[in-house]
C-alpha cells in the first residue's frame, strides 16, 4: 500500500471559498506549515466553489460537475495528479465526484455535457487523487520525520481531535480508508491524533471525534446546531481537553460561533479553546502565533498557549 502512495512534495492546492473568508487562519497556517516542511502548494487556477453542502440539494449532479471542473483544471491545465483540499466539504465533494464519475454513467454524461458547453476538458475518473491536508502531512512527511523537525513541543497540551462528518462519511467514497495498518479509519480516525502526538501533544480519549456540529444548518436551524456543538464542547471538557483541534473551516467556525451562541442563548460557558490542527502544528514547528493566524480565531487560546510554554 505505502509503496503505491505518491510523494506529495508538490501538489495542486484547492483552498475553497471558506478559506478565503472565515477560514482564513486555516488557509494561512496550512501554507506556512507546508513551507516549513518543504511541501509545495500550487493553487488551482481560477477555481470555483465545490457546491459545499447546499448545491446537492438543488441537484446532486451539478455538485458533481462543480468538483469535476476543479479536478479537470488541476489535471488537464496544470498537469497535477494530486489535489489537496484542507476543507472537509471540498475534500468530500471531490471524493464523491470521483466515486460517481467512476461508477455512474449518468453522472459522466451530465458532467461531459456541461463541461463541453463550458468550454473545458471533461474530467475523467482517475486523473487525480484527492487528499486532505491530514493525508498530505501524514503521508508526505510522516510522523518520524515530523517529530525530528519539532522545535517547540506541544508537551502538556491536552487535545481533543475533532474530525466531523465529511472526512469519513459515507465510507464508500473513501476506498483508501479502512485498509488496515497505515490507512485512516472511518470509525476511529487518527491521522490528526498521530500528527499532533508527534508534535508532543497529549491526545485525550475523545468520544465525539466524528459527531456532527450541525454545520449544514448553522444559520437555518441554529438551536439544533448550538445543541450539537454544546455536546461536543462538553464532551471535550469532560475528557479533560484544553483545546479542540479542527481540520475543517465549517466545523471550526461552527464550534466558535455556537460556543458564543450557547453563552448568549443558553447561558452555558465553556473554557475549551478551538484551533486548527495546522495552527498547533505550525507553532510546534517553531512558527510564531501570528504567522499561523492564532489571533484570527474567535476562541482565544493565547493565554493557554503561554501558560503551557508554547507561545
Amino acid at each position: 500500500m505505502s509503496s503505491e502512495k505518491k510523494p506529495y512534495q508538490k501538489v495542486a492546492y484547492y483552498p475553497g471559498c471558506a478559506l478565503e473568508g472565515t477560514g482564513h487562519a486555516y488557509n494561512r497556517s496550512t501554507k506556512e506549515v507546508g513551507k516549513a516542511l518543504g511541501l509545495e502548494l500550487d493553487e488551482v487556477n481560477n477555481w470555483n466553489c465545490c457546491g459545499a453542502m447546499e448545491v446537492k440539494n438543488i441537484d446532486p449532479k451539478i455538485q458533481t460537475y462543480l468538483s469535476s471542473r476543479v479536478m479537470s483544471i488541476a489535471a488537464n491545465e496544470m498537469g497535477h495528479d494530486v489535489v489537496m483540499a484542507p476543507c472537509n466539504g471540498c475534500y468530500h465533494n471531490l471524493k464523491k465526484a470521483e466515486y460517481d464519475l467512476k461508477n455512474d454513467a449518468d453522472s459522466r454524461q451530465v458532467v461531459d455535457r456541461i463541461s463541453s458547453k463550458a468550454g473545458h476538458k471533461t474530467y475523467e475518473a482517475g486523473q487525480v487523487e484527492t487528499i486532505h491536508a491530514l493525508d498530505w502531512i501524514k503521508d508526505g512527511i510522516g510522523e518520524e520525520a515530523l517529530r525530528a523537525r519539532i522545535k517547540n513541543s506541544l508537551k502538556g497540551l491536552k487535545v481533543a481531535n475533532y474530525y466531523g462528518c465529511m472526512y469519513t462519511r459515507p465510507r464508500h467514497i473513501f476506498p483508501e480508508k479502512d485498509q488496515g495498518e497505515g490507512s485512516e479509519s472511518t470509525s476511529q480516525p487518527h491521522f490528526m491524533d498521530d500528527l499532533l502526538a508527534a508534535a508532543g501533544a497529549e491526545n485525550v480519549d475523545f468520544p465525539l471525534k466524528t459527531a456532527c456540529c450541525g454545520g449544514a444548518h448553522t444559520l437555518s436551524d441554529s438551536d439544533t446546531s448550538t445543541l450539537l456543538v454544546l455536546n461536543i464542547l462538553r464532551a471535550a471538557e469532560a475528557a479533560g481537553a484544553d483545546v479542540i483541534a479542527t481540520e475543517c473551516p465549517t466545523c471550526h467556525s461552527g464550534l466558535e460561533m455556537h460556543q458564543v451562541r450557547a453563552e448568549s442563548k443558553f447561558g452555558y460557558t465553556s473554557n475549551v479553546k478551538i484551533t486548527y490542527f495546522t495552527q498547533l502544528l505550525g507553532m510546534a514547528l517553531g512558527l510564531s502565533a501570528k504567522k499561523v493566524g492564532m489571533h484570527e480565531n474567535i476562541s482565544d487560546s493565547m493565554a493557554l498557549l503561554k501558560q503551557k510554554g508554547i507561545a
Binding site: C17, G21, T22, C49, A52, E54, V55, I58, D221
Partner: peptide, 27 residues
C-alpha cells in the same frame, strides 16, 4: 420552503451565477 431550502437556494444561485460564494453575502 424550509429555512434550509431558502439557504440552499441563496447559496446555489450565487455559485451558479459567479462560480464562487462570498460568506457575508450569503448571510
Amino acid at each position: 420552503k424550509s429555512p434550509s431550502m431558502l439557504f440552499d437556494e441563496e447559496f446555489s444561485e450565487q455559485v451558479i451565477e459567479t462560480g464562487k460564494i462570498e460568506e457575508g453575502r450569503i448571510i
